[in-house]
Design a protein around this nucleic acid. Structure first.
Lengths: 169, 169
DNA sequence: TTGACAGGTTTGAAAAATGAACTGACTATC
DNA sequence: GATAGTCAGTTCATTTTTCAAACCTGTCAA
């Protein structure tokens, strides 16, 4: 399977991964949420090579995650800003940051702290159920096929179980 | 910058991306949360090449995201199970799934539906503030340097602003 | 007119992914 | 007891990506 084929998969992870499933893209998006907007700034902060940065930004613009908007004329210069679609990636980035804070932080602790301007406190992001508000545990979630399910390839295996290890019976 | 250098960066996104920032790894993890555990099943469901699957599983085991446990003797066979560290990636996967559901779903709607066994309802994942419980908006969050911050490279740019476009003054 | 700045593109070498076939330990069936 | 099948990988040659350094373009300031 080629990467570009992922867009056509009947799986939301595959389709999302076709947009952001790339190490540099995730780092670029992190910087976008830190209000970095210009080519040179991304390049210097990330240490990414210029051709790769150009290609990643081009793809993010094509996918409407970033918008390329002029910030001056003469010489015409552009900056890259998150669209609403791009801003909706905030939970993805925040959950990645949080996992890194918990499991990958060095001895000195986490590199950045987040302050919620609504309540004023330093916080961690928590993922909850939209229906009851309780934090989510993967063992308390069942998955069913939705209207967009195509074939059986991406269903959970207990809905398409074929006999396994028949010789063990 | 090499990918392996990312682990040493003073940025939680970079450190996390060094573990999961790969298209196949994210798809493997999606399947792990759907209770897929065996080499052949991953290979068939994902269409990943076998050498790549082997290398990704090896890395996830090395990073303690998955554990390789025997499920039978004679012939000795192993399966891959999420560790607690791996299960903590649930918000990452769920936020990716949700973004795909909202922004990348086809005309027929989302491929999978999630049911919360605690409340019984079909739900979406929502990311909230651990302090006040309100949903997070990136514009309502300020970032400060934490104890693990090293140098200024990964700080938000407003804390290290240098003069820009001096000739425009 | 010389140099600097912002935002890229070009080019050749190095690294990674792909696809197909193969290995090895074991079992089940003819 | 020969043959086929299962599962979890590895090997190897080919194609694709990525990397690093240098180069290009338009504009401005000294």
């Amino acid at each position: 399977m080629r990467w570009s084929d992922l867009e056509d998969e009947a799986c939301s992870v595959a389709r999302t991964v076709s947009v952001i499933g790339d190490r540099w893209t995730l780092l670029i998006l992190r910087d976008c949420f830190l209000r970095v907007r210009r080519f040179e700034d991304f390049q210097e902060r990330l240490g990414i090579t210029r051709p790769l940065l150009a290609s990643r930004l081009r793809k993010l613009v094509k996918d409407f995650v970033l918008a390329k908007v002029p910030y001056q004329q003469r010489p015409l210069r552009y900056e890259y800003r998150l669209t609403e679609k791009g801003r909706d990636l905030y939970p993805v980035i925040m959950s990645i940051v949080h996992w890194g804070d918990v499991h990958m932080a060095g001895k000195k602790g986490r590199p950045l702290l987040h302050q919620h301007l609504v309540c004023g406190k330093t916080f961690d992001p928590v993922m909850v159920c939209s229906a009851c508000g309780e934090p989510l545990d993967p063992r308390q979630v069942h998955v069913h096929r939705g209207p967009g399910a195509a074939g059986s390839r991406n269903l959970p295996p207990d809905e398409q179980r074929r006999p396994r290890l028949a010789h063990q019976r």
